[in-house]
Amino acid sequence: MMTPTPKSKGRPEALAEKVYQALKQDIFEFRLMPGDRFSENEIAERLEVSRTPVRQALFWLEREGYVEVWFRSGWQVKPFDFEYFEELYDFRTVLEREAVRRLCAMPPLACAEVLAELKRFWIDTPRPDDGRIVSAKDEAFHTTLVAAAGNQEMARVHAGLTEKIRIIRRLDFTREDRVEATYLEHAQILQAIFRQHTDEAQRILTGHIAVSKAEVRKITLHRLQQARPQPAAPEEADTIHRRG
């Protein structure tokens, strides 16, 4: 089931944005699974809105590649396209290797300053038990590396790419061994950057991403179904007021 967003008032565009964010979050949290089919009416009734903001939100999601029209009679979450995700991982590797090269070329004090928060979490602080926290922090680790390199356009492109592979990364962090490996490898990458060892940092980073990329091919319907959370009790869910 989808999770309704908090009550909303305001312009139709603002309501469509809330529906859009709610549906995207449902996809990322596996409440809407790849291949799931649904109608605009089902979403409108569940979120207590009219079909107009639902349709607008779905068109935005379609443009971004998350959903598709199903024979003009409904919608479905796009099934996994393994080659597409692998291409995204290849592009991600190129961007992050370049970011590491730039960070290693920075003055050491400046580099230590921009990466201080990453060092605090991945090296200096004990690991949290919640894999969901580690998953979010893993994403932030890589986006911070690219942003800290100082090229805003590169960071913008990388952020968009990161969102598209988020569902894969969250599956990756349902396994304890992957959480442990992520902690170790992130610490190694940071330490190599601080030593300005470009080749070493790029080698560890490339291997780190390659393991995640290899996991893409291991995704099965059973694994996805295991990741789907149990629906919340009705009294725990907020709703969007019906409008329009």
Rank of each mutant, 00 (worst) to 15 (best):
E42S: 12
E42R: 05
E62C: 05
V49D: 05
F38N: 02
E62M: 09
V54P: 00
E48D: 09
E42K: 04
V69R: 11
V69A: 08
V54H: 02
L58P: 01
A44I: 08
S50R: 07
E64D: 09
E48L: 11
F71T: 09
A57T: 07
Y66E: 05
E48P: 01
R46G: 06
L58H: 01
I43R: 02
R55D: 00
E62Y: 05
R51W: 04
L58S: 01
E40V: 11
V49Y: 07
E64Q: 08
T52N: 12
Q56E: 12
L61C: 04
S39D: 14
R63S: 10
L47A: 08
N41K: 15
V67Y: 06
P53Y: 05
S73T: 13
S50C: 07
V54Q: 00
F38Y: 15
S73V: 11
L47D: 03
F59E: 14
E64P: 02
N41V: 15
W70C: 06
R51D: 13
A57N: 04
E62T: 06
P53I: 03
S39M: 15
V49F: 06
V69P: 00
V54N: 00
R51N: 13
S39P: 14
S39W: 08
S50E: 09
S73F: 10
R63E: 13
V54I: 03
V69H: 06
E40A: 10
E62V: 03
W60T: 11
L47C: 07
F59S: 12
E48V: 05
V49N: 06
F71W: 11
A57M: 06
R72S: 11
V67T: 10
V49A: 13
E42A: 13
G65N: 05
E68H: 04
W60R: 15
R63F: 06
P53M: 04
L58I: 02
F59A: 12
F59I: 14
F71D: 14
S73C: 08
E42N: 08
E42Y: 03
R63Y: 07
I43A: 03
S73L: 11
R72C: 04
S39R: 15
T52G: 11
F71N: 14
T52M: 12
A44Y: 07
F71V: 12
V69L: 09
Y66M: 02
L61I: 02
R46A: 11
E64I: 02
S73K: 14
W70T: 07
Y66N: 05
